[in-house]
Amino acid sequence: MPLLRIRNLSVDFATASGAFRAVDAVDQDMETGEILAIVGESGSGKSVSMLALMGLLPWTATVTADELSFDGHDLLNIAPRARRKIVGNDLAMIFQEPMSSLNPCFTVGWQIKEALRSHLGLNRKERHARAVELFEQVGIPDPEKRLSAFPHQLSGGMNQRVMIAMAIACKPKLLIADEPTTALDVTIQAQILDLLADLRRDTGMGLVLITHDMGVVAETAERVSVQYAGQKVEEQPVGALFATPHHPYTGALLDALPERATEKKLPTIPGVVPGQFDRPAGCLFSPRCKFANDKCRSTPPPPLGADMGYARCFYPLNANERIAS
């Protein structure tokens, strides 16, 4: 049984001008101990689907799904009290802005001990020992001293380590990292990504990495799911995705990377991600796709099989290579 199983997940937001579909019929499986990257541009719904899983969406959101199960628990129809028991214990999340995720009024030590108290119920001494141990585990030098520091006294990288320490305090089975390094410098980013990979190896937890950075994906993930305008358009193991993308969107995205450029003029994707008012009838990528024909524009393509990376496309790229091999 997979650790995480999502079937046909959709999230709608009520806005000033009617309903807006942020996540559209997303399926996702996740095995224990795996690193899955969810890649997408802004507005692709990559964070929203995971927030829906955590039950952290605002009241304007409506979540529907055929199945939303984590580690045998049905998260769709769960009582809030039971959900709180799972979230924070077995299911943890870290966010992009470490500075604003921590409460500036309390020391980081107080905050991590509070998390330990509410979830594990340790006594004062045990809590302190565990906090020191966790800080050592995430590579915070001089943990005894850092416990009594306030968030504003620590750098962004250190605060992100504190957030990770809090997230892994209860030995979660799945850690969702939402753009964990976007706000950090590259040298610090490398440290944090290494830390996450090490933690995954040591604890065997699953890791969902939500990001827009193709470089981070290539170096960290094992399996990649590409989202576009709320839909999952493709999913492949990392090597195959970069070598033989099947969905034209994935292909165009990879071509647009400056580091893959062969000449001064970069390949571009014309147009913008469809918004609330110009959602196409057929394939969501069809207005921007250079291969689109009338069928693409009128009929939404269903996902293909595993050999084609579940691509939502009538005419997937690199189909011949696959058949030949």
Partner: peptide, 25 residues
Amino acid sequence: KALLSATPRAEPGAEKERIKLKGEL
């Protein structure tokens, strides 16, 4: 050199030696 080596490249499995910088700014 460290900055260049820390920048993630969109090439899975590329062999490279990553220089880990100690500490922070």
